[in-house]
Design a protein around this nucleic acid. Sequence first.
DNA 1: CTGTTAGCGCGTTCAC
DNA 2: GTGAACGCGCTAACAG
Lengths: 335, 335
Amino acid sequence: MNVTIKDIARIANVSTATVSRVLNDAGGYNQETKKKIMDVANELGYRRNENARSLVQNSSNIIGVIMPNVATIFYGDIVNGIENVAHEKGYSVIISHAGVNGDRLVESVKLMAERKVDGLVIVTVELSKEQIDLVNSLRIPFVLLSTDTPEKDVPYIKVNDYDAAYSATQYLIDNGHKRIGLAGVYPKDRVAGIPRIEGYKKALEDNGIPYDSNLVKFGDFSYYSGKEAMESYLREKVELSAVFGVSDDVALGIISVAYDHGLIVPDDLSVIGYDNTRVAEMSIPPLTSISQPFWEMGDEGCRIVIEAIQSKKKIPSKIIPYQLVVRKSVKNLLI
Amino acid sequence: MNVTIKDIARIANVSTATVSRVLNDAGGYNQETKKKIMDVANELGYRRNENARSLVQNSSNIIGVIMPNVATIFYGDIVNGIENVAHEKGYSVIISHAGVNGDRLVESVKLMAERKVDGLVIVTVELSKEQIDLVNSLRIPFVLLSTDTPEKDVPYIKVNDYDAAYSATQYLIDNGHKRIGLAGVYPKDRVAGIPRIEGYKKALEDNGIPYDSNLVKFGDFSYYSGKEAMESYLREKVELSAVFGVSDDVALGIISVAYDHGLIVPDDLSVIGYDNTRVAEMSIPPLTSISQPFWEMGDEGCRIVIEAIQSKKKIPSKIIPYQLVVRKSVKNLLI
DNA sequence: CTGTTAGCGCGTTCAC
DNA sequence: GTGAACGCGCTAACAG
C-alpha cells in the first residue's frame, strides 16, 4: 500500500488536517511543524492521491482532448501545444479518439464526464446539434479547434478558411496566373470545403477572371485525391498554369503526377498548398503553402479553457491569423 | 451537483449497494429491481464517478503514455495504436511529455503515480538507471517502445535496428552499389545510432566492400542533417552511387540537395530511407524505406501492458519485424 | 436477493 | 496553531 497523509500524521505526531494544510500551502501552521511534516513526507516518499483529491474537490485538474483518429499529420502539434500549456498550469491531459466520422464521439464525451475532466478541447471534429447539447450538459468549459459549428455560443479557434483561400488564389494571380485550378476539396465540408471554394471563387471574381468548373477537382484532401485531380487535368487537357491544392497532401499529389508526366514545378506548373505541414518544406521543390498554426492553436485552446475553468467566464471564439509561407513552388509569370 | 448512486437508491427505494451491484453487473439481484434501477438511472442521466471508483479500487483504469515532446512525425501513429487498444479494453489514456532530453521525465512519472495509472507506456525516451528505478518503484507494468535500455528486466518493443540497417545496406549492394554513404546518424545514440552504423558496416564487410569513413556523415536524424550530409559529399567530391539516410527526413534532405545540384534520384544517386513515415510515399521519387510499424508498436505495447495488469505476469521484450518497402528511389546498376 | 456498515485518501468545517 | 469529525461517491464485507 502507498503512503498516505495518515502515515505522515502518525509519524510526525500531528493530525491529518495539519498534514493536509502543509501539503497544500494552506497557511495557518507553525514553521516547525511544517518542516517536520515535510521531512517525514520526503522520507516516506509521499505522493498524493489525485483520485481522492478529485473526489473531495469534485474536479480533477484534467483537460480532456477529443480528436478524430485518422492519422493526419498535424494532430501531433496540436496535442503538443495543448500538453505544454496544461503541464505549465498543473493540469494533466487525457485523450480520446472520436472515431473516423465522429462515431465514437458520444462515447468519448461520456468518458470525459466520468473522469470529471475540468475542461474539454475538441479537435477538428464536427459536432451535430445533439452532440453540442451533450457537451454542454457537462457544464464545463470547452473549445473547438480548427473547426466550428453553426450553433450559437459554441466557442472555436480556427483560421478563416475563406480569407486564406482567397489569399492563396490572389497570390497566384499576383504572380500572373489566370488559369488556376482548385484541387482535392470536398464540396460538402462546411468547415474546410465550402469556405475555401468560395474564397477561391471570390478572388477570381475580384480580378475579373471567369470561373471555370473544369478547373475545380473535388476530393478528400488526401495525397491520392491530389494525384487524381492532376491526372484528370491531364486527361481532359485542361489548360492551366497553377493549382491551389486544398492541403499540402493534395499539393504533393499534384506535384507527383506532374513529375511523372515530365512537368517541372514550378516552371511548367505552379502549385500552392494549405496547412504548411512538415512535408511542405521537405517537398521538391519546397512548397509554398498557407500556414495553419497548429501548435499555437493547441496552446491557445488549452490556455483559454483553463482560464475559463478558473474564472468561470465565457470563452470567446477566436480567428487566428494564417500566413502565406512562400517557398519555391510558384513561378512568377510577370518577369 | 451530479446525480449519484445515492439519488438513484433513494428514488428507486433500494440501497446504494444494490444500485452498485446492478450498475456493475455484479449479479445477485432480482431482474425487476434491476429494471427499476436502470430506468431511474437512465432517467436521471446518471454517469458514474470514475474518481470515486478509482479511489476505492485503488486503480484507475488509466494507461499512462510518456513521450518526448519533439514534434516527430510518427508519434501520432503510436498514440493512435495505444488509444485504440486502450479504448477497446475499457481503459483511458493520459499523456505526458518528457521534455526534449527527457528532462521532464521524472516529473511525468510522478504525475502518473499521482493519477494512479495502472500501466505505463514509455515512447522513445531513453532511461537512466535511476529513472528505471523510479518507474519500477511504481510497481505497475510498463513497456518501452522503440527504444531499449542496458538495464536487465526492462521490457521493450522495437525493431532490430542493426538488422534493419544491414538489410537496407544489403539491398543497395544487391542493386549493384559499392560506394554507399551513410548519412544523418548520431554516433552516440545507443538505440538508433550505433546499431545502424554497425549494421551498415557489417553488410559492407560481408560483401567484401571496404569501409570508408568519408562516406559516413553524422547528424541528428533531421531533414537538415540530410541536407548537410549531401552538401558535404558534394563539397568533398566524395564518389558514391547511393546513400542510406538513417531516417526518411534525412533521405529527403539528401534528395533535396541532390535536386538543387541537378542530380536526379535515382538515376544519378540512389537513396534509401528509414521509418517509412508518410512522407516516404509522397516523396519524389517515392522513397524506398525501412518500415517501422508504429501503429502496431502502440497497439502491441498497450495490449501487452494491459495483459500484464490483469494477469500480473511479467512482460517479455519483443523484437517486431521491420519491412523493406521498395519504391522508386534506388536504381539497379546491374541491368 | 438485499440492506447495513465500513472505509478508500483527502480536504474542510468547527471547535478548542 | 492544531485536532476531531465528517463527507466526497463508490465498492466490499458481512448480515439477514
